[in-house]
Design a protein around this nucleic acid. Structure first.
Lengths: 343, 343
DNA sequence: CTGAAAGCGCTAACAG
DNA sequence: CTGTTAGCGCTTTCAG
């Protein structure tokens, strides 16, 4: 059914070598020969077999992307950007969901996938960087988001402590003092949540506000419903906070949803800041103030990093730790007045 | 660096054949030999080379998923489910974004990708089923969503006409008569939008309401901003509709956002129904009434279909046309009263 | 500029 | 139950 390079060669009356040259454009071929070969290719509908090429090259041109959840807006958007960056480098992306499950993260590396990929970009939730790096070897990996300690693999992340500090400081600057946080994940070794909590507490202290455990809302996952649940607990036991810093926009949206049902107005009674700058936040009601990581930059950095490792594997460059920029985008959910400010 | 089957064989003192048997579990191997081979595998950290295996088998175990946008909540969720279904069958998914671009859709098939994939699930926006099927041959493909005419490839979709009819009828049952639609895409050959428009008009006629062109809001894309834009035009030139059926939840959310800014209350002044049942709709304000396609079912049907084609390619079964179930989920955006009804 | 031939790592016939 | 071997389709030395 499918024709091979040899078939094309036979048809064009040349050797396989010449066809290969025409296809890859690697060496000079006489214009006339090239034309004849091209004609044969078209007639036979020939397309190179990637498996054979990979076998030969020792490379597949495929990289893996392992994220906890594809249906989370933040990861979906990031995945889209990464796929774009990959295409720019003629790389193909295989996406896998780990659901934050340690077993899934491990299987990705030990399973057959480990051999089909030239490299892996992973946002780990359960495994430590060390465990990942040692399991993956010699597969190059790039870590997204933060997991301490560093030094085992390349990593790209925003400065979570500073970002969280800025978000919290923004709430304090509005005159709010009972500033709660939503999104701690003590059950996971989620470094990101820990760092954001650290920034949150740092900002409070700097403003002379003592952090209080009952203001720190833990969550199981980072979805709207978890945010709603945490918000409910804060309203019931947290001593009525007047502001919330949620560690993700989804959590923030869930919290706002619940606050509304409890008759708490946002931003009047409760100012809310999220994290991620997902599209829903821009079109929700009220529009959501959020920490916006530069996702395109993250995608570029991660892909650049991985490509470097793949194409110069012998290069003994120590793991790099890249920080992507972020900025606080102020919208209605922290507006000083009740007036809508627009997008 | 990486060790091959031959290395393992040498180390275990057996032949390559035996190692292959141990790895694949295909033939009986003496318990003692198996143990020795396994030990060698572990020591060397051997993992089979997928490229070689694929070359041999003539199959890669990789299937493609081509969707217009990964960051659209609907497609992201669907992609997640498809990846799950694929794993259940030990298949790996490569995800690609077409952005609804004809060139991208074509390149996916003609480019090198066509050789690395065993099959393709695609949600086409620009190419016709016929063009896709003929370009793809002999690659099995499954179409998601509707594109007429049918008969060129397997297809999975909800009954868009009926679903749109139900959504519109629901609005009419609330006593609304100036029922607009948002989401027509006359510039694309988007069969889905056309079918939803058809169902919308059918419902109007059955209720004795004459469809009016100025009630049909066209959009460039299916995002919130497009919905907002279309809503603005309807309010300006559409004679103040009292209800809107949006062809996607994102459009609906954008429309609601804009209506709110114009001082139109939802659902009191404007009842809104969306399509897709994305998570944002459940946590927005108001919560969004929507047509909910059974996404899991869609994923299962599509994967089953594709797997059948891949594993029995000679089977001359004619292309099947599967209809996935859907249901109307009524929430606050079409509540008869202004009271919040909850999720 | 082109031909011949080796070999990437694996599996499956075919012996033994 | 296990060893030997051919060959999947391609690239790439080595000759010509």
């Amino acid at each position: 059914m499918t024709s091979s390079l040899k078939d094309v060669a036979a048809r064009a009356g040349v050797s396989a070598r010449t066809v290969s040259n025409v296809v890859s454009g690697s060496a000079r071929v006489a214009a006339d020969t090239r034309r004849r070969v091209q004609a044969a290719i078209d007639e036979l509908g020939y397309r190179p077999n990637l498996a054979a090429r990979s076998l030969r090259a020792g490379r597949t041109g495929i990289i893996g992307l392992a994220i906890p959840e594809l249906h989370s807006p933040y990861f979906a958007e990031l995945a889209g950007l990464l796929v774009e960056e990959a295409r720019r480098r003629s790389l193909t992306v295989i996406i896998d969901q780990t659901r934050g499950d340690a077993e899934a993260e491990r299987r990705l590396l030990t399973g057959s996938g480990g051999r089909v990929m030239d490299g892996l970009i992973i946002s780990p939730w359960s495994l430590t960087a060390q465990e990942l790096a040692s399991t993956a070897r010699p597969l190059p990996i790039v870590l997204l988001g933060e997991r301490s300690p560093q030094g085992f693999a390349d990593r790209v992340a925003v400065d979570n402590v500073t970002a969280a500090d800025e978000a919290t400081t923004h709430l304090l600057a509005l005159g709010r003092r009972r500033v709660a946080a939503i999104g701690l994940q003590p059950h996971l070794h989620n470094g990101t949540a820990g760092l954001r909590a650290e920034g949150y507490r740092r900002a409070l202290r700097r403003a002379g506000v003592q952090p209080r455990p009952e203001w720190e809302g833990a969550v199981d996952a980072l979805h709207r419903e978890d945010g709603a649940l945490a918000m409910a607990r804060l309203l019931d036991n947290g001593g009525a906070p007047d502001a919330v810093f949620a560690f993700s926009d989804e959590l923030a949206l869930g919290a706002i949803h619940l606050a509304h049902h409890r008759g708490v107005r946002v931003p009047e009674g409760l100012a809310v800041v999220g994290f991620d700058d997902i599209e829903d936040g821009r079109y929700g009601r009220p529009t959501l103030t959020t920490v916006s990581p530069d996702k395109r930059q993250i995608a570029q950095m991660a892909m650049q990093c991985l490509a470097d490792r793949i194409y110069s594997p012998d290069n003994e460059v120590p793991p790099s730790d890249l920080t992507a920029p972020h900025r606080l985008v102020v919208r209605d959910s922290t507006a000083p007045q009740a007036q809508a400010v627009g997008t």
